[in-house]
Computed example of a mutant assay.
Amino acid sequence: MTAPVTLALTAGEPAGIGPELCLMLAREARDTGLVVVACEALLAERARRLGLDVTLHPWQPGEPARCEPGHLSVWPVAGCVSRAAGKPDPANSRYVLATLETAARACLDGVLDGMVTGPVHKGVINEAGVAFSGHTEFLQALCGVERVVMMLATDELRVALVTTHLPLREVADAITPERLGQVARILDRDLRAWFGLEQPRILVAGLNPHAGEGGHLGREEIEVIEPTLARLRQEGLSLTGPLPADTLFTPHWLEQADAVLAMYHDQGLPVLKYQGFGRAVNVTLGLPIVRTSVDHGTALDLAGTGTADAGSLHTAIRVAGHMARCRRRAGEVGA
């Protein structure tokens, strides 16, 4: 009998809503095994504050995760020195990073099948003197990969990015044939491996208004994007574009696609978040492990109130479980 998929779930910033979102999962039975990687005392204290009846079970590798209502398996991580809701403390920064490293190494070692990350506060971590630009870059370095791709997804739409957190004036120079080629290949490969798509259909946005309008509104499409897409098509990738971004996100085009490749952050993500904020998931492609995340921040103003919405976390867990199962099936076929 095939063992069930079991995921690591990091609780994120201790002062934010991450710990209570983890606890809310215990309200009902789960068909995917979850191990919360966090300070056990933090979870217990937040449960008492919110009046949640949750029994925490310290977990060790090799044990099954508790999936019945009212119970959570916890991989205890020490070092959380301040547990006050809504009041972040830079002294907790190394603890937060320790939860990420613990979860990621468990996935790399095959102990767990993937990881889902709760929201962290990058500013607080940097205040502690620790260089940290985000989950994605941290996991990229830990896993030793050259390029990763950010993709946000809902049930209806997937949007991947060629560039991510760059000032707008730097975007055009960052879109090189090498970068565009790497990102498109990773997107195609991981849609096949992690999502079970035999021939992913990818729509590619142009950089400029009207996709450059034949060079009258910019030449990046002519000089970089179109030649790169032509070479990639010769490799077998199914790519349509470059298309004007203002008409790409319409039913006519989206009905023909499995994913959209946008050139920069605010070209693609506003559309996706308008379409599905609160039920979207952030997926890191290009890693050797499954990693998804919620699509929101720490919401310090909501922490400890019991009013946080766990919708995005439920989606992140469901997508990570699907990815892990696809990977497992692919491994069984290739064995």
Rank of each mutant, 00 (worst) to 15 (best):
residue 5 V to E: 01
residue 6 T to P: 00
residue 13 E to A: 02
residue 14 P to C: 06
residue 14 P to N: 08
residue 17 I to T: 01
residue 18 G to Y: 01
residue 22 C to H: 06
residue 23 L to Y: 01
residue 26 A to V: 03
residue 30 R to H: 12
residue 30 R to W: 04
residue 35 V to N: 01
residue 36 V to Y: 08
residue 39 C to D: 15
residue 53 D to K: 14
residue 54 V to I: 07
residue 58 P to N: 02
residue 59 W to L: 05
residue 63 E to W: 05
residue 64 P to Y: 12
residue 65 A to C: 07
residue 70 G to W: 07
residue 74 V to H: 13
residue 82 S to A: 14
residue 97 L to S: 06
residue 105 R to W: 11
residue 108 L to D: 12
residue 110 G to T: 11
residue 112 L to K: 09
residue 114 G to I: 08
residue 119 P to H: 02
residue 120 V to Y: 00
residue 126 N to F: 03
residue 127 E to H: 14
residue 130 V to D: 05
residue 132 F to M: 08
residue 133 S to L: 11
residue 138 F to M: 11
residue 140 Q to R: 15
residue 146 E to D: 15
residue 147 R to P: 01
residue 156 E to V: 08
residue 156 E to D: 14
residue 157 L to F: 06
residue 167 P to W: 04
residue 167 P to C: 04
residue 169 R to Q: 07
residue 169 R to C: 01
residue 170 E to M: 14
residue 173 D to A: 15
residue 174 A to V: 01
residue 174 A to I: 01
residue 182 Q to D: 15
residue 186 I to G: 01
residue 186 I to K: 01
residue 191 L to I: 12
residue 195 F to T: 09
residue 200 P to C: 12
residue 201 R to G: 09
residue 206 G to F: 02
residue 213 E to Y: 09
residue 218 G to L: 10
residue 220 E to A: 06
residue 221 E to K: 10
residue 228 T to P: 04
residue 229 L to R: 05
residue 232 L to G: 07
residue 236 G to A: 07
residue 241 G to A: 12
residue 258 D to S: 10
residue 262 A to F: 06
residue 264 Y to V: 05
residue 264 Y to D: 04
residue 298 T to H: 05
residue 300 L to C: 04
residue 301 D to L: 12
residue 306 G to S: 08
residue 306 G to L: 07
residue 309 D to A: 00
residue 319 V to I: 15
residue 325 R to E: 15
residue 328 R to E: 11
residue 330 A to Q: 15
residue 335 A to P: 03
